[in-house]
């Protein structure tokens, strides 16, 4: 297995770059970062729209979120593949096709996370800001969103892990990313699928697990600072099978 890594590490890391297109795990990470960064503004808009008291604002936003939630990501990828070039009037590379799909799909999921973060804030926060004379949008940008986004940071990191995993589906439309590189390698080597797919799985695991763990660490930190600020928010959990009581 090590020997396969030794002989092909550039393919797995960056694809054919710099001679050809960028690929491999670096492309996977860039795809996920681009997808997250571009989806974020849309997600905030959708979240705020869903919480709007006006029907003509929250209804379309709710419809968009539910439609995306009801579609397999693969379907979104195919839509992006066919429809996006027509919409913008010029051909798109596989990389940007996949980013387009990620933005559409993840806007909806990120919006739900941000919405939950906003709804978890005590009502008093909004009331206090409004009483000071802040308008709706200033209340949102100065008071509500900073807190909501900070509190949802662990969930957002978790969603970044989802994005990394979703980029693997670019394989189906032959986007140069990590899974695609590994499958190319597999057809080159032909007889060593166990090793090739183990390398693929282990690498994804290391990247995603590191991120999941950091999300947990952030979550604990946030919980600690919050506990410092106000008590009585702790939830008693059940030690369950610790041992039957005396």
């Amino acid at each position: 297995m090590l020997e396969i890594v030794q002989n092909n590490w550039t393919l797995l890391l960056v694809g054919q770059y710099p001679a050809g297109p960028l690929g491999g795990i670096v492309a996977t990470l860039l795809l996920a970062i681009a997808g997250l960064a571009l989806a974020f503004p849309f997600a905030i808009l959708l979240a705020v729209a869903r919480l709007s008291p006006y029907r003509w604002v929250n209804w379309p936003a709710t419809a968009v979120v539910n439609i995306v939630r009801g579609m397999p990501f693969l379907m979104v990828i195919f839509w992006s593949y066919f429809a996006l070039p027509i919409l913008i009037g010029r051909p798109l590379s596989g990389f940007w096709t996949l980013v387009g799909a990620l933005v559409l799909y993840e806007s909806a999921y990120l919006a739900e996370i941000i919405r939950a973060g906003i709804q978890a804030l005590p009502r008093g926060q909004e009331e206090a800001a409004r009483s000071l004379g802040f308008g709706y949008f200033r209340t949102l940008t100065f008071v509500i969103l900073p807190q909501a986004l900070y509190n949802s940071l662990p969930a957002l990191i978790g969603q970044f892990v989802s994005l990394i995993k979703e980029t693997s589906l670019g394989y189906v439309i032959s986007v140069n990313e990590f899974t695609y590189a590994a499958s190319q390698l597999n057809s080159q080597l032909l007889v060593r699928p166990v090793e090739v797919f183990s390398i693929l799985a282990i690498t994804y695991f290391i990247v995603c697990f590191a991120l999941t763990q950091s999300a947990r660490w952030v979550e604990q930190r946030i919980a600690r600072t919050r506990q410092g600020k106000s008590s009585g928010m702790q939830i008693q959990t059940n030690p369950l099978a610790t041992e039957p009581m005396p």
Binding site: V161, I164, K165, E166, S168, L169, Y171, T179, S183, F197, S198, L200, A201, Y204, F205, C208, F209, T212
Partner: peptide, 10 residues
């Protein structure tokens, strides 16, 4: 922590 597609391929 491994993409489902990779699990399926595996």
């Amino acid at each position: 922590n491994i993409p489902l597609l990779v699990q399926v391929l595996f």
